[in-house]
Simulated assay, not measured.
Amino acid sequence: MSEGPGADNRRDDDGNTEWEAIFWDIGGVILALDSVQGAHAEFVAELCDRHEVDTTVEAAIDTWRTTIGDYFRERDGTEFRSARDGYHLGVEAIVGEEIPRAEWEPRFDEVVRSSIEPIPGAPETIERLADRGLHVGVISDVDDAEGRAMLEHFGVRQYFDSITTSEEVGRTKPDPAMFETALEKADVSPEHSLMIGDRYAHDVKGAVDVGMHGVAFGAEDGPAVSYRVESPEGVLEIVD
């Protein structure tokens, strides 16, 4: 664990901070994103086979990613858009016609559940944080049900005191409403709260802009980084 420039002027008279809460992003911090990509690739391959799509799996995966990427890029600023709606468009773009959700969603969910993996050390760290007397929360740009299902799958849902998702708030990070909603739920002050994320502008700077402390885990460097950790376990060093 290392401290960034943002940590220097946020100490009390004894040089310590009385932490009240720590908030986690999900993707890239709790959830290993490469395992998600693998799950989507497996689903697309099965989709092509089932519907006898006349293209290569590689081309279909590219269509999937492009369609979903365009869907999110077309949103208005930090407006929330459901990932499920994006996946539905991806299925349609690959098959060439609209496929009812009831036909593809069950298998999609099955593939994702069997393939996704947590970041090494994240579940154990979250469990240990639950014994620290801190508010442990989530602030994530996910569909509400999907985010909760991932946490359940990794066996950590019970350790979180609050979960704040973009679907609930209607906005995505770095919109202040995401962080302010989470802080209000936790009834904690931003200056005594940490936010751990893998994206500088969205997670780290977004949190710092409302007065929180940003913890970078794989995120770019910048003046908003109060702390940098190389593994989830590094968070324990900060709070202890």
Rank of each mutant, 00 (worst) to 15 (best):
Y71E: 09
Y71D: 08
R75T: 10
R75G: 01
D76K: 14
T78D: 04
F80M: 04
R81N: 01
R81Y: 10
G86P: 10
H88A: 15
V91H: 07
E92L: 11
V95Y: 09
P100K: 14
P106S: 10
D109S: 14
E110F: 08
V112Q: 09
V112H: 07
S114V: 10
P120I: 12
L134D: 05
V136Y: 03
G137D: 02
D141I: 05
V142L: 15
D143H: 01
D144Q: 13
A145L: 15
A145G: 06
E146K: 13
A149Q: 13
A149F: 06
H153Y: 08
R157P: 08
R157Y: 12
R157N: 10
Q158G: 15
Y159W: 13
I163N: 05
T164G: 02
T165A: 00
E167C: 10
T172N: 13
P176L: 13
P176K: 11
M178G: 00
M178S: 09
F179Y: 14
E180G: 03
A182Q: 04
L183R: 04
E184Y: 02
E184W: 04
D187Q: 14
M195W: 03
M195R: 02
M195A: 08
M195N: 08
A201S: 15
D203W: 00
V204C: 01
A207Q: 06
G211V: 08
